[in-house]
Every structure is written in structure tokens, then in C-alpha cells.
Simulated assay, not measured.
Amino acid sequence: MPGARAVLRRITDLNGAASYDDVQRYFAHHPTDPIPPSKIGGTLTSVKAVQRRIGPDSAGPLLQRDERARLYRIDRALVAGLARAFALADARPDLLRGEPAARVT
């Protein structure tokens, strides 16, 4: 889901931690990936759903929440890997679309 990927990227860019309100304000009027304030909670929930489908059963949650503080956090060990993945996605956007790479002969 592009919304979930954009939210993960934003939290990664903020060194792995952001408040719910910060994420909501950032995406409310974002020029390329706007997410209405009423939908941001569902987008954050979809991050957990994606992890359950593709992550190993024993993995802890990628996006951790402190409901009382409304703070979302990504474990430090994962932030560097996500940052590398997003840099690769910027360099090779075809990888995210599932398109075959051009063959070199």
C-alpha cells in the first residue's frame, strides 16, 4: 500500500520515531502522497498488517506504538535497513513496481 510505505519512510526519515499528530500534519497536505487526517489511523494500522503477511512469525512488530503518548517508533536496528531500502527504491523505482529490469547483453 503506497500510503503505508510513505508513512514508514517518513518515520524512518525522522530517525525512527514520530508522534501520531506529526505524521497526520505532514500528510494532510502532502503534494504527492496526501492522506486525509481521517485515514491516517488506518494507514498506520496497515503497516502492521503488511508485516504480518511478509515477516517471519517470530518477528516483533516493525512499527511499535505507545497509545498513551501517541508515539510511533521503529526499532533502531531496523531504521538503517529501511533507509537503505528506500535509497534503493529511489535509485531503482522499477523494483517496487515489480517490473523486470532491463537485460544487459
Score class of each variant (00 low, 15 high):
Pro36Ile: 13
Pro61Val: 08
Leu63Ala: 01
His29Gly: 06
Ala49Glu: 15
Val47Tyr: 00
Lys48Gln: 15
Leu88Gly: 07
Ala83Asn: 10
Phe86Pro: 03
Arg76Met: 10
Phe27Ser: 11
Ala69Arg: 13
Ala83Arg: 15
Ala77Gln: 00
Leu71Tyr: 04
Leu62Asp: 02
Arg68Pro: 00
Asp57Ile: 11
Ala28Ile: 08
Thr32Pro: 01
Pro34Tyr: 15
Arg73Met: 08
Arg25Asp: 04
Arg70Thr: 11
Leu71Phe: 04
Arg76His: 08
Phe27Gly: 07
Leu88Tyr: 09
Pro61Lys: 08
Arg76Tyr: 11
Thr45Arg: 13
Asp90Asn: 10
Gly42Leu: 15
Lys39Ser: 14
Leu78Asn: 11
Thr32Tyr: 07
Ala91Ser: 09
Gly55Tyr: 03
Gly55Leu: 01
Ala77Ser: 08
Val47Glu: 01
Gly60Asn: 03
Ala59Val: 02
Phe86Cys: 06
Ala77Lys: 04
Gly60Phe: 02
Arg68Lys: 05
Ala69Glu: 12
Ile74Ala: 08
Gln64Arg: 10
Lys39Ile: 12
Asp66Ile: 02
Gly42Ser: 15
Gly60Trp: 05
Asp33Asn: 13
Asp75Phe: 04
Gln64Leu: 04
Arg52Pro: 01
Lys39Glu: 12
Arg92Ala: 05
Arg52Gln: 12
Ile40Gly: 07
Ile54Thr: 04
Gln51Met: 11
Ile35Cys: 02
Thr43Ala: 14
Arg25Thr: 02
Arg53Leu: 04
Arg73Gln: 08
Gln51Arg: 11
Asp90Leu: 09
Ser38Thr: 12
Leu44Lys: 06
Leu63Ser: 07
Ile40Val: 12
Gln51Tyr: 04
Tyr26Met: 09
Ser58Thr: 14
Ala59Trp: 01
Pro61Glu: 10
Leu82Trp: 01
Leu44Thr: 04
Leu71Val: 07
His29Val: 02
Tyr26Asn: 04
Ala69Asn: 11
Arg84Ile: 14
Gly81Val: 09
Ser46Val: 10
Pro56Cys: 02
Ala59Cys: 01
Gly81Met: 14
Leu82Met: 10
Arg73Phe: 02
Ala80Glu: 01
Val79Leu: 06
Gly41Glu: 07
Pro56Asn: 08
Leu63Asp: 00
Arg53Tyr: 03
Ile40Met: 10
His30Tyr: 02
Asp90Ser: 13
Val47Cys: 01
Lys48Cys: 12
Ile74Asn: 05
Ala28Lys: 11
Asp75Tyr: 03
Tyr72Met: 02
Phe27Glu: 06
Asp75Arg: 07
Arg73Glu: 05
Arg76Lys: 12
Thr32Gln: 08
Pro37Val: 11
Asp90Ile: 08
Pro56Ser: 06
Arg70Ser: 12
Ser58Lys: 14
Gln51Asp: 07
Gly60Met: 03
Asp90Phe: 09
Arg73Thr: 09
Ala91His: 06
Gln64Tyr: 03
Ala89Val: 07
Pro61Thr: 08
Ile74Pro: 01
Ser58Arg: 15
Val79Trp: 06
Phe86Trp: 04
